[in-house]
Nucleic acid binder design. Structure first.
Lengths: 229, 229
DNA sequence: GCCTTTTGTTACCGCCTTATGACAAGGAGG
DNA sequence: CCTCCTTGTCATAAGGCGGTAACAAAAGGC
């Protein structure tokens, strides 16, 4: 199971340290910062799987960071959990409407925050929570690095496996070649867009071995999508 | 925008009525029940997009319903929002660990619940939270790049897709050929005005395949408009 | 009713996008 | 050090798509 990567934005240093310790004990990778502007940088550079955001941090307000994360295409889909000392309903609603995926009201126990983070991750990226992905008749177990179709075990190369995993985490959705490069090869990889075609080809070959239908849909001038056949 | 379907499981009848009223005013379809066993039935038969579940309902405890919903493959992926009168941390964590996607602690305002439900839906099924365009009987999902009419999937080329999307974003309005060129082909494209006619033709052809009415209205000496038939 | 203007429709050709196989460089493992 | 596997790139083929022109049809204007 890969370690989910968390970005923790919290300017109360003792709380930040406590949380970092607890989350690392749970098997998370934690990147912490107390500064709002640095948070924006880290969010794009480190590509965290989830952001924990204090409502009030130095530099920028948490809600503003949230809004900026949502606006930037790179980070628009990263789930956000807000920490707020205020219990007022308006603030909570504003947080949710700004695009936070969840919030926790101080004071809270680390255990509760961990449960919420894990719930959000389970929802957004099942593979990170150790679950088995299943789309149509294809099953992918990220933990054991195994793919099966109708019980038949499939043989995929490393890149094809990551590509398939990403697709299965977002079934039905169309991704451009650029998006796929970012998601599967890593942001900033300097690779020809056309290379994606080749790996799509290899993935198709590996997946349709037993005469099964092709779950990869080509969307002309847009990219590719993965869906149940 | 399609109406998301909610299953509301709540045995406090006055609260249930209030919520049903408020959610319907927000454009949701609400199925309500006060009984736990009936809830299980409705969950499989009605295939709701989300379940709002009171912690304590007659027949079965909410948490038990939650567990059973998760266990059944049909309903395992339906998001669940729990309503709980108890504020104790243990209960909340137990709720999340059981598989609830969110919980709201009583007393709460309908507005807050609505915000949470909409946040969960946005996360889980973007198509239900507004990424889907709908005009008349035609649906366009930009995320999956799909167009359907009365359930029938339509086949459109890239340009026709963009043209239709633009039309559906501004239904009823008349656009000149020049405006369409700017919007769909991009500003500064050096293309014959009459080319638009051809693509309108192709769009019509693709959309009226199954004998449906033509939603594209020709406005002589002005341009074209798209409207519900 | 006749003429003019505007739109509908079809056909065609070139171009752009995608599919596919081959190949060489790089790396892991023995 | 050698071998096998993986991977990125390229060349080429195939096919769909798009823009244009030409002609037919329809709608207004008189």
């Amino acid at each position: 199971m890969p370690s989910p990567r968390l970005l923790l934005v919290e300017d109360d240093l003792s709380l930040a340290e406590l949380l970092q310790y607890r989350f690392e004990a749970e098997g998370y990778d934690v990147i912490a910062t107390a500064d709002g502007d640095e948070a924006m940088l880290l969010a794009t550079e480190q590509a965290p799987d989830l952001v924990i955001l204090d409502w009030m941090v130095e530099g920028t307000s948490g809600i503003e960071i949230c809004r900026r994360l949502r606006r930037d295409k790179e980070t628009a889909h990263v789930p956000i959990v807000m920490l707020t000392a205020r219990g007022s309903e308006d603030d909570r609603i504003r947080g949710l409407e700004t695009g936070a995926d969840d919030y926790v009201t101080k004071p809270f126990s680390p255990r509760e925050l961990i449960a919420r983070v894990s719930a959000v991750l389970r929802r957004v990226r099942p593979a990170l929570a150790g679950e088995m992905l299943e789309v149509g008749d294809i099953k992918l177990d990220a933990t054991s690095h195994r793919v099966t179709r109708r019980g038949q075990s499939l043989q995929l190369g490393p890149t094809e496996f990551r590509l398939l995993k990403f697709f299965m985490e977002h079934p039905g959705r169309v991704f451009s070649r650029g998006q796929l490069l970012d998601a599967v090869w890593g942001t900033g990889s300097d690779i020809e867009l056309r290379t994606v075609d080749v790996h799509i080809r290899r993935l198709r070959k590996g997946i349709t071995l037993e005469g099964g239908k092709d779950p990869v849909r080509t969307v002309r001038s847009a990219g590719y999508a993965f869906e149940a056949v």
